[in-house]
């Protein structure tokens, strides 16, 4: 019965570690390239180099939450706990990446716009996402029954993810009425190599981390589902 939770051998953890390690390596390469070798941008100067880590983080954060959405649907349709552990993992990784995204965004905004937060629709939507999924993670910690926890967090994740485009458009609208600004985040074609390398780097790192985090969830679940040992 307990084996329904884990679909891979518990001992085989070399893959996620290797994948994550490869990801970190790529990140080092890509960041070094972006910091040392990519030419300076005309208007934004060296501050623009933040984009080489900011844009890849943004892509992967959204990917993590999209994967979480898929896991939630799979969890509701299939039942069992396989997809639930992946949901737990990808939500946590998504929150970590999105929080990082907001920090990067603030550090980028200060020299660019003079303020720490410029209500950029994408970044503001990310902030809402951090709060929404943190709330679902909190919900999980309050529910003891594993079956109920799986169903409820899947339902909540679906509801939260469907909201993402709505939040984005409402903030974009709301912001555009008060400020006329274009976000100069476009990276010209000459600079895209460090961007791609970092994007794949974070992708691999994220993949490894989600896999490991899912195994942590699975191990915990197995312990919870096992009947307590009879006193001899």
């Amino acid at each position: 019965m307990a084996t329904a939770v884990m679909d891979t051998k518990t001992s085989d953890t070399s893959t996620p570690y290797m994948v994550a390690g490869a990801g970190l390596l790529l990140l080092v390469v890509g960041s070094y390239w972006g910091l040392a070798y990519a030419p300076r941008e005309t208007y934004m100067g060296d501050v623009q180099r933040i984009m080489y880590v900011h844009v890849p983080t943004a892509w992967n954060a959204m990917l993590a939450f999209t994967f979480a959405f898929g896991c939630a649907i799979a969890s509701l349709i299939r039942g069992g706990y396989r997809w639930d552990t992946r949901l737990e993992a990808s939500m946590e990784v998504g929150v970590v990446l999105s929080t990082l995204l907001c920090i990067q965004g603030a550090i980028w905004a200060k020299p660019t716009w003079g303020v720490w937060w410029d209500w950029d629709p994408r970044l503001t939507t990310t902030a809402v996402l951090v709060l929404a999924f943190s709330g679902i993670i909190a919900l999980r910690s309050f529910v003891d029954d594993p079956g109920r926890r799986a169903v409820w967090s899947a339902v909540a994740a679906i509801i939260a993810y469907v909201d993402v485009p709505i939040v984005y458009f409402s903030v974009k609208w709301w912001n555009s009425l008060h400020q006329m600004q274009s976000t100069p985040e476009t990276v010209s074609k000459a600079f895209h190599w460090p961007l791609r390398i970092n994007a794949i780097g974070i992708l691999l790192l994220m993949w490894g981390l989600i896999a490991l985090r899912a195994r942590i969830a699975a191990l915990r679940l197995e312990r919870q589902l096992q009947p307590p040992p009879e006193a001899a």
């Binding site: 809402v128 909190a138 909201d163 709505i166």
Partner: peptide, 17 residues
């Protein structure tokens, strides 16, 4: 704590609109 924690981020568009 959980109810507002879950509801408020979700209804941001409602508040804005």
């Amino acid at each position: 704590t959980l109810l507002p924690l879950l509801l408020f981020p979700l209804v941001v568009p409602v508040l804005l609109a």
